[in-house]
Amino acid sequence: MSHRQFIAAAGFFLLSFAVPLVVHSDYTLQILFRVFLFAALGLAWNLVGGYAGQLSLGHAAYFGVGAYGLALLSKVGIPPWLSLFLGVGLAVISAAIIGLVSFRLRGPYFALCTIAFAEVVRLVAKNLPDVTGGDVGTQVPLLFTESSIKSFYISGVLLTGLAFVLTAWIERSKFGYYLMAIREDEDTAMSVGVNTSRVKLWSLLISAALTAIGGALYASLFLFIVPDQVMSLDMSVEIAIVPMLGGAGTLFGPVIGSIVLETAAEIFKNIFQEAHLLIYGVLVVMVVIFLPEGIAGTIANKLRLFKKAPAGSLAAPVPVRPEEEAERTAFRK
């Protein structure tokens, strides 16, 4: 992260904390909470899907375990905040199990395996009504007693901030470089001594923990959850689409993706009611065809092209052909 980016990010988060001072409408705050929630989920997914290049389509499992952890553990008398953290622990354990099996696979096999695990989790939650309430759903305790939507908004911003700082730190660390090496070429990474299985697993564990916190916040805001809502394939897809739209493997991508996607979805929700996922589809297809590196990646490239040559250098900046650039940076198998 460059100096300028750091200032931009710090300014953005400071402004975000100030929003409830100006905005008092519950509706607007709820939408903004959603924007930050999905920014955080996107940042979490980005560690596995973006930096490590492992296309997970099963993040709804961690989201759902976080949500159900909070709901079910507080039902047996554990205080809500403790339940939240225990739920996160459960999500991390399930991520370890899922990761150990699915990281042995590559490409589409990995994606399918994550879907299968998430579906098993969903179906188990659906089919054990005595434990989870099944299809009828279960109640979730409120995490904040006072001015709840504002508190949710602030916690959304905090979670995004946490995920952002973690990502920024990982991006510059050895661990981050290992992840990117795996994305570029797993075999080569292995051959130069990167313990790819362990690195991938760690990225998933961090990702799952953040996702589970997000799930718990989401559940607590709605007070009521059903498996088909918090553990569906649609949820996994939404978590994955946000960062890919913004720019997978970039620090700002998931935040930008969430702002664009959630705002667009909200507008279309008012026009089309239930069919609002249509806009997701249209955006996704358009981004892949026209902006294959996501919004953030494309902006970064454009900026690079227009940047002046360093003073005193005779060489003019060499423009990179967009398709060449796309091939170079795009994800490989």
Partner: peptide
């Protein structure tokens, strides 16, 4: 671009939503 399978999966997902 590049026929990358990551991207193809994304497009088919998007198309399914549409």
């Amino acid at each position: 671009p590049g026929q990358v399978d990551f991207m193809v999966i994304l497009v088919t997902l998007g198309l399914a939503l549409i």
